[in-house]
């Protein structure tokens, strides 16, 4: 087992338990690996850094939303790789490049390199959040963007705390679908 697998898995387990700092560290490190992975993969399809950054954000959102699906009995690297590759194939299919063109790669490819040079991406998540149903917009805006606690957000919008939590969860899923529709060309 590599050091990065051990470290990232520890961060993931802490994040699953609700440790925000560990989750942040995990997403930061994964975003560098994902960026290097997507830049390398997309180069062979004539796509550049902007599309790679689009995919980095899509994959990070998916990893965040689906983090309950990581089974601690398994290695983390293959789980991350499976999501990254799934998003890559989905992206290429949406942009009408056939799936058969994606060469098979190893799970370790995803952790092979990292890339700190973040570029602009093509869509703006803030603008897409404005297209969500009102409660989801409020909940994500207050808690995830402004940084209010769930209790404060609930008070501000006269909603229950569970309603805020559900709205955040559903809103992020809806956001992922909006991004998929946005990135079609």
């Amino acid at each position: 087992m590599t050091t990065s697998e051990r470290e990232l898995k520890a961060l993931m387990l802490a994040g699953q338990g609700g440790d925000a700092a560990a989750h942040r560290r995990l997403l930061e490190r994964l975003s560098q690996h994902l960026r290097a992975y997507y830049k390398r993969k997309l180069a062979s399809f004539g796509k550049g850094a902007m599309e790679a950054e689009d995919l980095v954000q899509e994959a990070l959102l998916a990893i965040h939303i689906q983090r309950h699906s990581y089974d601690p009995a398994e290695l983390l690297t293959p789980w991350v790789h499976a999501i990254a590759r799934y998003k890559l194939i989905d992206f290429l299919r949406r942009s009408r490049t056939s799936r058969a063109d994606v060469p098979i790669d190893e799970a370790d490819d995803i952790m092979a390199n990292d890339d700190h040079v973040a570029t602009e991406n093509s869509y703006d998540i803030r603008r897409l959040i404005e297209k969500l149903p009102r409660n989801m917009q409020y909940a994500i805006g207050a808690v995830k963007l402004e940084g209010l606690s769930v209790a404060e957000a609930a008070r501000r919008y006269q909603l229950s705390e569970p309603a805020i939590k559900v709205s955040i969860h559903r809103g992020l899923k809806a956001l992922a679908n909006l991004i998929a529709k946005e990135v079609k060309t």
């Binding site: 994040g15 699953q16 700092a21 942040r24 997403l27 960026r35 990070l60 973040a118 602009e120 995830k144």
Partner: peptide, 23 residues
């Protein structure tokens, strides 16, 4: 939104997940 802003947003007020949910 830049990627590091997205990371910050996603890790704010993190809820623990239910690992047994899928099973």
């Amino acid at each position: 939104m830049k990627t590091d802003e997205l990371v910050t947003a996603l890790s704010r007020h993190l809820e623990p997940v239910d690992r047994g949910l899928i099973r």
